[in-house]
Amino acid sequence: MPQTIPFTKGHGTGNDFVVIPDPDGALDLSDDQVAVLCDRRFGIGADGVLRVVRSSAIPEGAGADAEWFMDYRNADGSAAEMCGNGIRVFARYLVDAGWAFIDDEPLAIATRAGVKHVTRSDRGFEVDLGTWRVESGDVLVRAKGAGAPRPGMGIDVGNPHVVVALPDTDELDALDLAAVPQLHPEPAKGANVEFVVPSDPLVHAGTGSIRMRVFERGVGETLSCGTGVAAAALAVREWAGPAAPDAWTVDVPGGTLGVRMHDGHVLLSGPATLVYAGEVTLA
C-alpha cells in the first residue's frame, strides 16, 4: 500500500535536499525510492535526501554522543559519509522544528563520519568538520573540456575528495561536468572531484580566495559541495606553502562559503535555507 510522508525542501548555496523527518526510524527507504524523490522531472528534485532520525534508532548511530543522526543519501540512493551543506540544512530543520537548540552550546549531530558540531555564525551556521588527511600520491584526472589530464590532490575530510588546480576561469567555465571525470588510480570508495582557480591576488586582507566547481559522486555536478569547498581550500593552502592563511572564501555557482582552519580542524560556514514543506507518496 502506498505510503504518504511529510518532507521539507532545503538548500545550502544551491546544494539542495529533501529533508524527511523519521525520528523513530520507522522508514526503510530503498535506493530506488531515494532516487525517485531526488529526480528533478518525476520527483521533488534534489541532490540528496536527509533523513532526520534519532541516533538510537539507526545502527550507524549506536553509541553516538548526539541525539540526532543525519542519514544522508546521494541522489542515486547510495549512502554517504558526510555532507557539509546538508548538515547545516539538517541543523536548521532541527532548530525550526523545535527538536534542538543552538544557543551557548554547539549542536552535536551524528553522521557516518562521526559526530559533528554546529554553531551559529555570521554566514548562517558553521560546522566543525574535524581533522583532515592529505592522501599520498597524485591522482590523474581527465575531465571533458579540460584538455590534457591533470594531477589532483586527494583530501579526506570525513569523505574522499580529489582537488584539481586549473590555470584560469576560462578553463573552469569550459568544463563539461555532465560527463563523469575519470580518475587514475580510482579511489577505492570513489571521490568527489573539485576543480579550482585561485583568485588574483590569492590573499587579500589575510583571507585566501578561490573559485570552484564540483562533480559529486552519486549525484553529478552540483551548485555547491560543502565538504568539497573545505577540501578545495585545504588543497590550495597546501600548494601555497607555510605562509598561506587559515581563513578562506570559496565561490561556487550557488554562492559563497567560508572555510577556516583552527587547532588542526577545518570548519565550514554558510547559509541554510528551508524553502517549502509538503507531503509525498513514496513510489
Results as ranks from 00 to 15, higher is better:
Gly61Glu: 00
Asp263Pro: 03
Gly12Tyr: 05
Ala243Asn: 12
Val250Gln: 03
Gly130Asp: 08
Ala79Asn: 00
Thr273Gly: 00
Ile5Ser: 05
Pro181Ile: 04
Ser136Gly: 12
Ser55Pro: 04
Ala272Met: 10
Val266Met: 10
Ala247Pro: 01
Gly152Pro: 03
Gly241Met: 06
Asp263Phe: 00
Leu50Val: 02
Gly45Pro: 10
Val236Asn: 08
Asp39Tyr: 11
Gly218Trp: 00
Val53His: 06
Val134Thr: 15
Tyr72Val: 15
Asp176Leu: 03
Leu183Cys: 07
Glu171Met: 15
Phe17Ser: 08
Arg142Tyr: 01
Gly77Met: 03
Gly61Val: 01
Asp65Tyr: 07
Ala75Thr: 11
Leu94Gln: 02
Gly206Asp: 11
His11Tyr: 03
Pro160Ser: 14
Ala247Tyr: 04
Leu129Cys: 02
Gly43Ala: 08
Asp200Ser: 15
Pro167Glu: 03
Ala143Asp: 09
Arg237Glu: 07
Gly130Gln: 08
Gly98Asp: 01
Val141Cys: 08
Val266Ala: 03
Thr249Ser: 15
Leu172Cys: 01
Phe42Asn: 03
Ala79Gly: 00
Gly63Arg: 13
Lys116Ile: 12
Asp173Phe: 09
Arg92Ile: 09
Thr273Asp: 06
Gly63Pro: 01
Lys189Phe: 01
Ile87Pro: 00
Gly220Pro: 11
Thr222Gly: 11
Val89Glu: 00
Asp263Thr: 02
Val266Ser: 09
Glu238Trp: 13
Asp156Arg: 06
Ala80Ser: 14
Val52Asp: 01
Leu50Gln: 03
Val252Ile: 14
Glu186Ile: 05
Arg211Leu: 08
Glu81Phe: 05
Thr281Glu: 15
Asp104Asn: 15
Val259Trp: 00
Ile102Asn: 06
Pro6Leu: 01
Arg40Trp: 09
Val180Thr: 15
Gln33Gly: 02
His204Tyr: 09
Val53Gln: 10
Ala232Cys: 12
Gly130Glu: 10
Glu67Ser: 07
Arg73Gly: 05
Asn85Ser: 02
Ser224Arg: 13
Gln182Thr: 13
Trp99Leu: 15
Lys116Pro: 06
Asp31Ile: 04
Phe215Thr: 11
Met70Ala: 00
Leu202Ser: 07
Ala80Val: 07
Ser269Gly: 02
Pro242Ile: 09
Trp68Glu: 04
Leu50Tyr: 05
Val49Asp: 04
Ile109Arg: 03
Leu29Phe: 08
Phe17Thr: 06
Leu50Glu: 06
Ser55Cys: 06
Leu172Val: 02
Arg237Ser: 11
Glu221Thr: 11
His117Cys: 05
Ser136Pro: 02
Asp103His: 13
Gly270Arg: 04
Met212Cys: 10
Phe195Tyr: 14
Leu129Val: 05
Leu29Pro: 04
Arg112Tyr: 09
Arg120Phe: 08
Arg260Tyr: 01
Ala91Val: 04
Asp104Met: 13
Gln3Met: 09
Ala174Arg: 12
Pro160Arg: 12
Ala146Glu: 11
Lys116Arg: 13
Asp39Gly: 08
Asp32Arg: 13
Thr13Cys: 12
Lys9Asp: 00
Tyr72Trp: 01
Phe125Trp: 15
Glu171Asn: 04
Ala62Pro: 02
Val196Trp: 13
Ile102Val: 14
Asp103Ala: 14
